[in-house]
């Protein structure tokens, strides 16, 4: 088999960049919905790496893992958005810094 034109390393590097961008979103943004979107971005970055390794190893396991991650992500989004909606009703805000309950 001839080596693929785009090496696996490039995919992994791209995946890392997207992942860290998602991480920055989680850390720096305060809007809960945006944080959620950033988490989705991180998941997609991981998916990309998985698919790349699946091609490299010639087995389908990586792709199946991507499939499962997508499914779980869908469940997570449904529950997470429901939580955001529920919180919004009481706090009238989607800012996660408003969520803290600890008294100093």
């Amino acid at each position: 088999m001839e080596p693929p034109e785009v090496a696996t390393e490039l995919y992994v590097l791209l995946s890392a960049i997207l992942f860290i961008l998602g991480t920055l979103g989680v850390l720096l943004r305060r809007n809960a919905i945006l944080i959620f979107m950033s988490v989705e971005l991180m998941l997609n970055a991981a998916n990309l790496a998985l698919a790349a390794f699946a091609r490299q190893w010639g087995t389908l396991d990586g792709q199946l893992l991507v499939f499962f991650v997508m499914t779980i992500a869908a469940a997570e989004v449904a529950v997470g958005l429901a939580l955001i909606v529920a919180i919004f009703r009481t706090k009238k805000s989607t800012d996660i810094d408003d969520l803290h309950l600890f008294k100093n």
Binding site: N44, N47, A54
Partner: peptide, 22 residues
Amino acid sequence: FFLMLSGAFLAMVQITVYAGAI
């Protein structure tokens, strides 16, 4: 990218489920 990585099915699911539904 999924298409390029010979994951045709994943690409379709990515579009419909992620970009679409979610």
